[in-house]
Write a protein that binds this DNA or RNA. Structure first.
Lengths: 129, 129
DNA sequence: ATTTTATTGCGAATAAGTTGCAATAATATA
DNA sequence: TATATTATTGCAACTTATTCGCAATAAAAT
């Protein structure tokens, strides 16, 4: 299953690379200048996840959000699980530079982590005062 | 909006109290001995959440799971955000006794946390070897 | 006993995500 | 450069989780 380069793939990847936030499918669809089918966007995103280029976060709204794993440096380095912050005001999700550290009971094996804090980001806190 | 005592409410609460795990709507419906409508179960659960009796966790499957906030002692005490563990093998979610501690950037205000680790629980790890 | 209104069941609606299938278009190969 | 291979796409239909409107029911208050 060799991957091919397509305008769709490039467009979605560019969006994610230039975004400070994790994006949902509909946000991506809205922000794209070319029209891409919903199902296709999901397929592209899921392929990115399989390839380790992008990671998926599920927020408490039950929706999937996608973010580039490593912004720029050390693209090789495996991304470690980290916290995410979802601002309820501006409805964005961003990666925090805080690794998830949680000791689990004996015999438990952790494969993945999905950690999202919700609240108000700095920008929105300022606006509301 | 005063709350009323109903068989439905009692049944759901009992189930949650006697369960070691967080339960989804369909798990609750399955485990109940009386038949309760799907929508009603959701409404009861959401009311419990509003009242702070139960907390909701959203897993990476996008589904909502509900758990009693405090098992027994100190029912007054506000539950603090903690990690959850979801076993992919037996498909259960349990509360870990590990509080979520995560420093956020300046000006950010955290209201809630939704943190789920996924993997294999002790039981299932043993079974698979 | 009667009134008030919270709760329920039902059916329909919504919303997110996935899937099958035929058409299209990258890439490999000749 | 032309052709063959098969990854990717668009479309429509489907699934699953959750919510909502509304009329009927039943706690609790009077």
């Amino acid at each position: 299953m060799n991957r091919r380069n397509t305008p769709t793939k490039e467009a979605v990847l560019n969006l994610l690379m230039n975004s400070r936030n994790a994006l949902s499918q509909d946000a991506i669809e809205r922000q794209l200048d070319i029209e891409i089918n919903r199902a296709t966007i999901y397929r592209v995103l899921n392929r990115f996840c399989e390839d380790g280029i992008v990671h998926k976060i599920v927020a408490e709204d039950g929706k999937q959000y996608f973010a580039i794993c490593k912004k720029c440096e050390n693209p090789q380095e495996v991304i470690q699980p980290h916290f995410h912050f979802r601002c309820l005001s501006c409805d964005t999700i961003e990666c925090l530079q805080v690794p998830v550290e949680c000791s689990v009971p004996n015999g438990y094996e952790v494969q993945n982590a999905n950690c999202v804090l919700t609240g108000t980001c700095n920008n929105c806190s300022l606006l509301s005062t």
